[in-house]
Design a protein around this nucleic acid. Structure first.
Lengths: 190, 190
DNA sequence: GCTGAATTTCAGTGATTTCTGAAACACCTG
DNA sequence: CAGGTGTTTCAGAAATCACTGAAATTCAGC
């Protein structure tokens, strides 16, 4: 028999703290788009963060009212992002999952992953485009002018994203513990 | 190895520079997800940025092979984001659109907009959640312990996003011209 | 106020993403 | 190795998002 006092209605008998947690989960879920992940992934993470508990798949399914498949895939994806970790409990074969409780280290993981997935491929493309673009020669002419300005724009983008990548490494890279301080420094308002 | 799938089949002979532009447009389009906009929006912007020209709706439709409706809506959205501006040409009733040619100012606009759309609402939710959360009292007990830790987690999130917001204002706000320098400063690798 | 060019809107359609549920798989333990 | 428990996979259903094309709207000039 399952231990589920499954809240089939929205919050049948939710404690005040559960209500607050649900609000957090839902807000966090709405941010999903911003992190480039699915709503469910965000909600699973929110649940584990805000409760602070290590939960197993069934508990997550039950609390968020999602299917086993969805839970499994979302958990897997969050593990891949490196913002969830596995644990086990003695005498229990189930896997338990918990979220990093340090907000800064959690965001470092997110930045690291987005760098890898978005900035790096773009940089590679930009280098590639630069290498394949027609090289302006000495002759004057509209084509040459166009080629020169094209090159300038590609260079500017490259410079920008190279800076972004260096910042990202500073923040999120292996040696990247310096950002909290940096943020505080920069954050001092004029 | 060949470069198949040349985008311009109806423009029979694409110039080398057009090919480079098309590659840029396509790479930029793939980043769309990262900026939280649709692929077409990103492509329209890429086209206007990389050509540096002011183009009208028909030219954009033709070059990107998209419908009038899609073009109109994408342009409108980009105008709302503040990274495109309108111009006119003498003796032509059509509207022309051009992209900000300064990469840094363009990204300031993007950051500003994402702050408004994502960070600010989340901050509002977090404040709201904090205010509605049960207040821990003096008595000991599991409920109290849970309430205390819940509060701590909400506070930590709040602190993080308040910092993010201040950083964003530093970078993208009205007084926000300081970031390029700041980025260079931070970017100096260890 | 009419005309026609330019632009916007939007219902319908198409494409993509996410979710479900059940089957397949893995792995203990007796 | 049989039976049970826990996890992953995946085909199809559902939900969401983007795009089209045509009709409606706006607006300058007559």
């Amino acid at each position: 028999m399952s231990i589920e006092s499954r809240p089939s209605e929205q919050h049948a008998d939710a404690s005040p703290i559960q209500e607050a947690q649900d609000r957090f989960i839902s807000s966090w879920g709405q941010m999903a788009g911003a992190w480039g992940i699915s709503r469910t992934m965000a909600e699973v993470h929110a649940l584990l963060y805000i409760t602070g508990d290590a939960l197993n798949t069934d508990e997550i399914m039950d609390r968020l009212r999602i299917s086993r498949g969805n839970a499994s895939m979302s958990i897997r994806a969050l593990l891949d992002w490196g913002i969830l970790s596995r644990t086990h409990k003695r005498g229990d074969r189930k896997e338990y999952f918990e979220a990093d409780q340090d907000v800064w280290s959690m965001f470092r993981a997110i930045v690291r992953e987005r760098m890898k997935r978005e900035v790096e491929p773009l940089l590679a493309s930009l280098f590639d485009i630069r290498d394949r673009s027609p090289v302006p020669d000495d002759e004057a002419g509209d084509d040459q002018q166009a080629a020169i300005e094209h090159q300038r724009r590609i260079e500017e983008m490259l410079t920008f994203f190279k800076t972004v990548e260096r910042l990202g490494q500073r923040f999120a890279g292996p040696t990247g513990s310096g950002l909290e301080a940096a943020a505080k420094l920069l954050g001092r308002l004029p």
